[in-house]
Amino acid sequence: MENFEKYKLFGFDIFNIPGHAPDQVSFYHKECNWLFAGDLLIENLPSNAFIEPNVDGNRTKSWVQQKQSLEKCLSIDIELVFSGHGNIIENPVKLVNDRIKEIDIKANNYLNMIKSGLSTASGIAQLRYQGKYEKHFFNIMSEVIGILDYLEFQGKINKEMKKGIWNFY
């Protein structure tokens, strides 16, 4: 783990777990193996990894960060996770692994949409979410753009600006 132990508060190690938000932190109690994870890990639904600008005004790679933060959780011994919503998570390692797999499954679904000819974030969002697209526009576009950033980060897709719109291939 990278320099997490140098930040402590009341016996808790504090470390960054960006993804849901770029400034999200967790509190880990090593003696109890408890992790207070905020919205990184929620038992009954995947956490949204919202795209936001960083301090320089550049868009964060929220889904890349989300996966890296989940992988950080696997590098520590955790028995209980206290989530920002819902129940205490009693089998966190399985849930963390499930969430990591879900990110890759979602990314592969988006990759297949691009391979089938869809090339814009809006087109992908409208096909995937149809009637929910307008009602939940921010959440949906945040997911779609975040996953496209994730695929680009992995080298699985490229993008090109055409008439002011990013096209992915």
Rank of each mutant, 00 (worst) to 15 (best):
F4Q: 04
E5Y: 07
K6D: 03
L9R: 08
F12K: 09
F12S: 08
D13G: 01
D13N: 12
I14H: 05
F15N: 00
F15P: 02
I17S: 08
I17F: 05
P18W: 08
P18N: 06
H20K: 01
A21V: 06
D23W: 15
Q24C: 05
F27K: 03
Y28I: 05
H29Q: 09
H29Y: 15
K30S: 04
K30E: 12
E31T: 11
E31H: 07
N33L: 09
W34A: 00
F36N: 00
F36C: 02
F36L: 02
G38I: 02
L41C: 05
N44L: 14
N44E: 13
P46L: 13
N48G: 10
A49D: 05
G57R: 10
N58Y: 14
R59K: 13
W63L: 04
V64R: 04
Q65P: 05
K67R: 12
C73K: 10
L74M: 11
S75Q: 04
I78F: 05
I78W: 07
I78P: 03
L80S: 09
S83C: 07
S83L: 03
S83R: 03
G84T: 09
G84S: 08
H85K: 06
N87C: 04
I89V: 07
I89D: 05
E90W: 09
N91R: 09
N91H: 12
V93E: 14
I100R: 05
D104F: 05
K106F: 14
K106Y: 14
N109L: 14
L111W: 14
L111Y: 15
L111V: 11
I114G: 04
I114H: 08
G117M: 06
L118H: 04
S119F: 10
T120G: 06
A121R: 11
A125S: 07
A125K: 07
A125I: 02
L127Y: 15
Y129A: 02
Q130N: 14
Q130T: 10
Q130Y: 14
G131R: 11
K132I: 00
K132W: 07
Y133D: 01
Y133W: 01
N139C: 10
M141T: 09
G146T: 02
I147H: 12
L148R: 06
Y150E: 00
Y150S: 00
Y150C: 00
L151K: 00
E152R: 01
Q154V: 05
Q154R: 07
Q154A: 06
G155E: 03
K156S: 07
K156P: 01
E160T: 08
E160N: 07
M161V: 11
G164I: 14
G164Q: 12
G164T: 12
W166I: 06
N167D: 01
N167H: 11
Y169E: 00
